[in-house]
Amino acid sequence: GFPHNFQETTYLKPTFCDNCAGFLWGVIKQGYRCKDCGMNCHKQCKDLVVFECKK
């Protein structure tokens, strides 16, 4: 597997964290999205993600 390539992201529609399944709250920059596989997560979850990037 590969490490994720997370970038701070502004979501335009309701989005949930792929790590904890919690809602990504806020208006802008609600969470992080992996540029390579599209995984979404909270800032506090991005260092805890157990799934490797599937590129």
Rank of each mutant, 00 (worst) to 15 (best):
G1Y: 15
F2H: 12
P3Y: 15
P3S: 15
H4A: 01
N5G: 11
N5L: 12
F6S: 06
F6W: 02
Q7I: 07
Q7K: 03
E8V: 14
T10H: 04
T10E: 00
Y11I: 05
L12Y: 08
L12W: 05
K13S: 09
K13F: 08
K13T: 10
P14Q: 00
P14A: 06
P14F: 04
T15Q: 04
F16C: 14
F16S: 06
C17K: 00
D18I: 09
D18K: 13
N19V: 12
N19K: 11
N19G: 15
N19M: 15
N19D: 10
N19W: 14
C20R: 01
A21L: 15
A21S: 14
A21K: 13
G22N: 05
F23M: 12
L24P: 02
W25H: 07
W25C: 03
W25T: 15
G26V: 01
G26D: 03
V27G: 07
V27I: 09
V27S: 04
V27C: 07
V27K: 04
I28S: 09
I28C: 07
K29Q: 10
K29G: 09
K29S: 10
K29N: 13
K29H: 10
Q30H: 02
Q30F: 01
G31P: 00
G31R: 01
Y32T: 14
Y32H: 09
R33F: 13
R33D: 06
C34Q: 00
C34L: 00
K35N: 05
D36K: 09
D36N: 13
D36M: 10
D36I: 12
C37T: 04
C37M: 01
C37N: 01
G38K: 15
M39D: 06
M39F: 08
N40T: 12
N40S: 12
N40D: 12
C41M: 06
C41F: 05
H42N: 01
H42W: 05
K43H: 08
Q44I: 05
Q44M: 13
Q44W: 13
C45A: 03
C45N: 02
K46D: 03
K46F: 07
K46L: 13
D47Y: 10
D47W: 09
D47K: 08
L48W: 11
L48M: 14
V49P: 08
V49R: 14
V50C: 14
V50I: 03
F51I: 10
F51K: 08
E52Q: 08
E52M: 09
C53G: 11
K54N: 09
K54M: 13
K54W: 04
K55P: 04
K55N: 09
